[in-house]
Structure formats: structure tokens, C-alpha cells
């Protein structure tokens, strides 16, 4: 049982770090703000949230597991909100998409002012 918990903890930690590392690569490699947001707000969030779950699994205590899941859901639920707000603010302020973007649906769907 102890070994299973340790393996689960190690797996959660390693998967979380891989997600975070992928996000760190993506935030440097993607061409513009809106594509970088894919990496930062999806992969980065899942990476650190998995490591929070790893703490709860490692402790093998229901109270700590509950707290770690509270942190998990809090972080997973707030990251899309902040990312959406930031993307909307940047788009409304006029920050351009990269040159290789083919479609800007927010721009075409908006009523012409």
C-alpha cells in the first residue's frame, strides 16, 4: 500500500512537471499572445494542479486530500476566467494576432462600430 501511494505520488509529480515544462516551452515558442495563452493557461494550470493532488495523495490523510482537491478545483476553475479576461482585454485593446493567423472570429462576429 505504501509503495502504491509512493508510485502514484511519483507519477503525479512527473506528469505535472512534464505538463509545466511543455507550457514553459510553449510560452516561448508560440508566435503571439493568444497562442501563448493556450500553453500558459491549459498546460501550466494542469501541471501545478496535478502537483497539488500529489501532496494530498502522498499525505494519505482525508483532510489533507480534501484541501489539496480544494486547491486543485480552485486553480482549475479560476485559470480559464483570468485567461479569458486577459485575452478579451488584449483583443479589445487592439493587440494584433500573428501574421500566420488565418481567422479572427471575434473581430468578424462583432457588430461594426
Amino acid at each position: 500500500m505504501d509503495l502504491v501511494l509512493a508510485l502514484a505520488t511519483a507519477l503525479l509529480i512527473l506528469v505535472g512537471t512534464v505538463f509545466t515544462f511543455a507550457a514553459a516551452i510553449g510560452i516561448n515558442r508560440f508566435p503571439d499572445l493568444y497562442t501563448r495563452m493556450h500553453a500558459a493557461s491549459k498546460a501550466g494550470t494542469v501541471g501545478s494542479a496535478l502537483m497539488l493532488v500529489a501532496v494530498g495523495v502522498h499525505a494519505a490523510d482525508l483532510a489533507i486530500l480534501a484541501r489539496s482537491f480544494a486547491g486543485f478545483f480552485f486553480f482549475v476553475l479560476t485559470a480559464p476566467v483570468s485567461a479569458h479576461l486577459l485575452a478579451k482585454a488584449a483583443h479589445d485593446s487592439g493587440y494584433p494576432l500573428s501574421d500566420i493567423s488565418v481567422l479572427d472570429e471575434k473581430k468578424t462576429d462583432e457588430p461594426r462600430i
Binding site: 509529480i13 505535472g16 512537471t17 509545466t20 507550457a23 514553459a24 510560452i27 499572445l33 501563448r36 495563452m37 500558459a40 493557461s41 501550466g44 494550470t45 501541471g47 501545478s48 502537483m51 497539488l52 500529489a54 501532496v55 486553480f75 485559470a79 483570468s82 485567461a83 486577459l86 482585454a89 488584449a90 493587440y95
Partner: peptide, 22 residues
């Protein structure tokens, strides 16, 4: 641009949360 830095700072918070968990 400024939004680039803001989104990178947002991700720094996530990475530090991972540090704290470890």
C-alpha cells in the same frame, strides 16, 4: 507586449505553486 508579460507572470504563479507542493 504587456499582455505577454502578464500571461507569463500568471504562469510563474502556477510554477511557484508547483514548487510549494513539491
Amino acid at each position: 507586449t504587456l499582455p505577454d508579460r502578464v500571461i507569463a507572470l500568471d504562469m510563474l504563479v502556477g510554477i511557484v505553486m508547483g514548487f510549494i507542493a513539491l
